[in-house]
Amino acid sequence: MSTRHDITLTVNGERVTRLVEARRHLIDFLRLDLGLTGSHAGCEHGVCGACTVRVDGEIVRGCLVLAASLDGAEVTTIEGLSDSGEVADLQDAFVARNAAQCGFCTPGMVMAAADILRHHPDATRAEIREHLSGNYCRCTGYQAIVDAVESTLTARKEGVR
């Protein structure tokens, strides 16, 4: 019976190999083993959304994923998403609208909002609110966040035309 596992996976486009404890969740793996502190542990029981990251292309709660299960997986964190430039416009919109205050929810919020940009380009304000409804923000009234996502969707659609 092994309590430690060698895993090799791709994180933000880089291949990493680590020996992890079986009880390590993905967020502690990212933060403690890889030094990627942009992902946050807000509740560690799957409710607040601060730990939202991508695994194999889809958003997940990082605190509800066993790091040991990710051998061969592809993980994208806020650091990788930012460096890729995929959501630079969304991030600019967050800045322009002050859609982040303390910022602790923000990486998870951006990951969830990026999911809207990819999968729901025609989302309405109500649908944006619904899609982000699992990401807790205590500081803003959510309105600036919805504004930022909505304006990014609009700008992308206009850019396409």
Binding site: G38, V95, A100, P107
Partner: peptide, 10 residues
């Protein structure tokens, strides 16, 4: 300080 917040660099 918002750019660092939205990029996870706080």
């Amino acid at each position: 300080n918002v750019p660092k917040l939205v990029q996870g660099r706080a």
